[in-house]
Design a protein around this nucleic acid. Structure first.
Lengths: 221, 221, 221, 221
DNA sequence: AATGAATGAGTATTCATTCAT
DNA sequence: AATGAATGAATACTCATTCAT
């Protein structure tokens, strides 16, 4: 499963928005831009530094991206696609619908998926989170494509479990919110504390307790 | 209680870092800066726009704040103090220790407190969240003063409830994390959906379900 | 002699251009200005730093001196007066005319006088030298009052010695130039090397050799 | 000889510090900077005026020189090299060692050399003299490279003449100081008076008398 | 496609000077 | 006389963008 998804995404990466293949320089520009944007924030990043890190001339950036903003969007737009990919891909989709027998399996899968995603795309995610508030186009697209789609799908998934007789009393959107909050809280703290050497953070324990907490909270255990 | 706290905070607001009274122009500068920083982000804000909105000459800003960064910190530093104020103030403190008979009261109080805070200081909070990743000094101070203190106090509070025989099986820090995640998730969604006209968001219902979810999740109901 | 001269000069210092007594703050302003101008040069000095060093408010400077340039002139103008003072003061004047029996005594007196002057007024002199090229008024005044008067007086003094039958073949102005060059060269090198610890500079020797060099050069020894 | 030297120097001028060829705009920037710095002094010169006079955009200056100070140094550093060039160049060097039969020839050559130099590089020299006191790096470099090298060479030259039995009684450094003082005095006065229409300045006469004065002063005539 | 010199509008910041207190 | 907040023009410098090569 993951292989399929990732392969699909890799392909995404290899082409620019117009579908054309990226040259090697273009790829280096995008890589540098991701680094610099993540480090300093979009507004505080200079195209000249990006060019320098990419080892290309200043002008070259503007041959590929008409403006600095275009470069940002060229990074962020595919990121959004990738964010929701696991939830809309046909293959994965089917899995979602059928494979999980109990809700805690869903939660566990979501956690693993998000952690993996964070690990792989930390910088891009950072950029996305930082810039969304300042670009209405991005906001709109994020809310429509990502939030809307993903939540709707999760809602349906939850509804399916509810049909089976569990969590009957709560609206499915509320269930989604509560589940996602718990997972995000776990992932967030893990991201901060999980990296420390002196960590008193027992990851497996915290993860399982989080899942149990949600299950109990939803009246499933 | 709230009156006392707010009064104390208002005082904070009325003086600059050095303890001196703010002139009227200085206050206008700070107000404009908060607006502009929140709207465009710190890096994308220009001192000239801040000055214009405040109705002062650009030079006036720099009479009060040596650099643009100083202006940012003059806004953000007291915000941090205020953030943790309810948790460290003597008055409130005593309350925390004694008044709550059951954990759901604590959760309800936290929710109300955070919502109120968010309503009052939305812009400053936005600035704080946006800028923390780019200013190590801010990061450090936030982690040490705000996170550290607040979480420690909450942990103690939780431990007290645990001593009374409830939630015995979980580490108090985990309990805090799970509780805070749920509350933050509720507040966040509420902030986004609560403002819409067409909202299918029944605030009282969602709040109570959130509290019940946490209580159940912790084995308290 | 020196006492008389210095007393007269001290008086100069105590009054501003208009003849009024200086207040203590004004005196501190002038002192600070001399320091700062000498350290950084006039153009690179800021009135705010001068005010700070003087311990007065920024506005206070402009109560006494309408512009920064006025402050400069208030420092430099009396300096020029003082520069030529020894040559025009009645008391000293008489001495010049009568007392010296041979030219080497004149040279020796000049050297001592210039060294003393340099020691006392190094900063003001530095300012004067630095700023003369950029202020035509200063240039004119310097050329007319200082150079003109001093050289003329020296020329007459030399002429008197020539009348006694020495240095007959050279124009007196040439004699003055050659003498002054040698003395200035000596004083300049002494200023640079004389301060070093490791100096291989035998001051008495160099001074006497300089005088002897001039005397021989003029055919007087 | 002079041809060779000058050719070498011209080459120096045509390349920037890094050895790269100057573009035409860069050359115009340097020219304008020399003019403006000489006219108003470094600190009082604005990059905008320099750009305007050079007919380039202000930004263009900073493409070539990272800071205004860099521009200053790019002007002054080669000037120092050129200042000492005649004394260290192999060709000239040999000449120095062998060609002059009597000391007055040396003096005459020095005078001509310095006058020529002054004529050609008056502005740069003015800048150099004005700015040396405020830039320790420049001071150091000047003292080490220029003063040190030149004086040492002159000292050796003088010593050679002394070996031949003349000026035996004086340290060679003292001889150099006295000679240079006289020449500089001559050149300085000449620079001031030599340009006037009404000049009572007989250049040939003054030059020869100066040389004769030095020769007599050193016991050589 | 790629370069990099050139641009000019824009940036944060400084400064001499003013003026109400 | 003295203050110091306020000013606005000027400053050095940056930046996204253009364009001739």
């Amino acid at each position: 499963m993951s292989d399929t998804v990732e392969a699909w995404i890799e392909e995404l990466l290899k082409s620019d928005g117009a579908g054309a293949k990226m040259t090697e320089k273009q790829a280096r520009i995008v890589q540098s831009a991701i680094e610099v944007f993540a480090e300093k924030g979009y507004a505080a990043s200079s195209t000249s530094e990006i060019a320098q890190r990419a080892g290309v001339a200043e002008g070259t950036i503007f041959r590929h991206y008409k403006t600095k903003k275009d470069l940002l969007f060229a990074i962020v737009a595919p990121a959004m696609t990738k964010l929701l990919a696991p939830f809309v891909l046909r293959g994965f989709h089917k899995v979602l619908d059928t494979e999980y027998e109990s809700y805690d399996q869903v939660l566990r899968a979501m956690i693993e998926n998000r952690i993996e995603f964070l690990r792989k795309h930390r910088n891009i995610l950072k950029i996305l989170l930082q810039e969304i508030p300042f670009h209405p186009e991005m906001q709109e697209r994020f809310q429509r494509d990502v939030l809307g789609l993903v939540l709707e799908r999760l809602r349906k998934l939850v509804a399916k479990f509810q049909d089976k007789g569990q969590m009957a009393e709560l609206p499915s959107s509320t269930v989604v919110r509560l589940s996602v909050s718990a997972i995000m809280g776990y992932v967030a703290v893990r991201t901060v504390y999980g990296e420390r050497e002196d960590a008193v953070w027992d990851d497996d324990f915290e993860r399982e307790e989080t899942i149990r907490f949600v299950m109990r909270g939803l009246g499933l255990a």
